[in-house]
Amino acid sequence: MSIIVHKTSRVLVQGITGKEGTFHTLQMMEYGTQVVAGVTPGKGGQKFEGKVPIFNTVKEAVDKTKANVSVVFVPPAFAADAVYEAADAGIEAVVCISEGIPAMDMLKVYNYLKKTGTRLIGPNCPGIISPGRCKVGIMPGFIHKEGNVGVISRSGTLTYEAVDQLTRQGMGQSTCIGIGGDPVIGTRFIDALQLFKDDPDTKAVVLIGEIGGTAEEEAAAWIKEHFNKPVVAFIAGQTAPPGRRMGHAGAIISGGKGTAAEKMDALKKAGISVCKSPADIGKTVASILKKP
């Protein structure tokens, strides 16, 4: 199995005719994802690459194509609206790639979605992939391999690095989920861990965190209580100075809180294998899973 996106997922692309949307839709289709619809207001009735029908509204797209997962490529100023529209149409999971959405917008989105059945992944994330089955996002598909390691990460390219290490060690992945680098995100470490816990095909989890916030500490406490599969963690930003935003809107040590050292310490105390070096992620998982 896999979590959130599967072979059967029917994917809708919001902002399919934009530059990013077009490029990545083609990549997703090439990977084998079932892209069943696109939405660009005003372009309803047209076809994307002569194959995928485009609709004016998400509601119409869902009614006509039974899409159940959407991926959002619209500019940040309009992204919150796109997520609301997907939720309104009953989409099960919205993957929001857009970077730079105002936090005040996301606060409303997050608290609104809690009252609906819609799950949000991201924003400011590479998306989610269940290797060999379904890719919803912008990650390079070919570095992945079907297998039993779940990956949860706040980062983009660092996730690719970790996945690449796993694949080179011969260990495939069940699902890799980029939860996003913003301070307010839809799916957190604990939400993803909960799903991996119930997924029989996931035998171990790689957790990639970074400075800022307390999500890693909360995950550590939760893992200690509720999760009995092996977890390997890496925290980026051990050398990051306090008070500076390191690229991601959420990566900042403020008021002395959110340091890598604190997070690594909390994870270690919860019995999690913490890698000091980002080069050791693959090896560490291998040493645990390949134990005779």
């Binding site: 980062s155 660092l158 680098g181 980026a236 050398t239 991601h248």
Partner: peptide
């Protein structure tokens, strides 16, 4: 010089290590 914020931080970390 790195692409991506997370990988950029991780690269700084490994230089120090």
């Amino acid at each position: 010089m790195v692409n991506g914020a997370g990988l950029a931080m991780a690269t700084m970390d490994i230089i120090k290590l």
